[in-house]
Computed example of a mutant assay.
Amino acid sequence: MDHVACRGGENFLKVWSHSGGRDSVDCYANRGRTNFGGWWVDRISTGNNDLIYYDENGDSVKIERWHDITFPNRPPKVSTIEIL
């Protein structure tokens, strides 16, 4: 799994998150896993990727491609993201 530059018109996995007073927007491509460091996830746009995120509670959540999900009230604290 590769961390890539976010560009309009691409179908990358895009994750909006925050931690310790900082906000971040990150994009990823290709199959694999990456450590997400326990950041709180506010939004996920899957693009053309099926993924699973693993939260700090030990739960895993699968989200299929072409979904855009927001977590306005209770964002998950994510430890790992995997593109399938």
Rank of each mutant, 00 (worst) to 15 (best):
V78G: 02
S60V: 03
I52T: 15
A5H: 08
L51D: 01
V4M: 03
D23I: 09
Y54C: 04
N57K: 12
E82Q: 15
I63M: 12
Y54P: 02
L51W: 02
P72F: 04
V25R: 11
E10W: 04
S19K: 14
G37V: 05
F12S: 11
P75R: 02
R31Q: 13
H18P: 01
T46H: 03
I63P: 01
N57I: 02
M1Y: 07
V41M: 01
F71V: 00
T80I: 13
T80K: 14
K77V: 05
I44E: 00
F36A: 02
G8A: 11
G37R: 07
K62R: 15
R74N: 15
S17W: 05
I52N: 07
C6R: 01
R43P: 02
N48W: 08
N11F: 11
D50L: 05
E82G: 07
V78W: 00
R43E: 13
T34I: 14
T70M: 09
V25C: 10
H18L: 03
D23K: 13
A5C: 06
E82W: 06
V15M: 01
R74P: 01
D50N: 15
G21N: 04
N11E: 15
S60M: 10
N57Q: 11
R22I: 07
W16H: 12
G8C: 06
W40Q: 13
G58F: 03
K62V: 10
H3Y: 10
I63N: 00
I69L: 12
N49P: 06
W16A: 09
H67F: 05
Y53A: 00
N57A: 13
G38T: 03
W39C: 05
W39A: 14
V15F: 01
P75K: 01
F12W: 11
I63W: 00
D2S: 11
P75H: 03
D2H: 10
I81D: 05
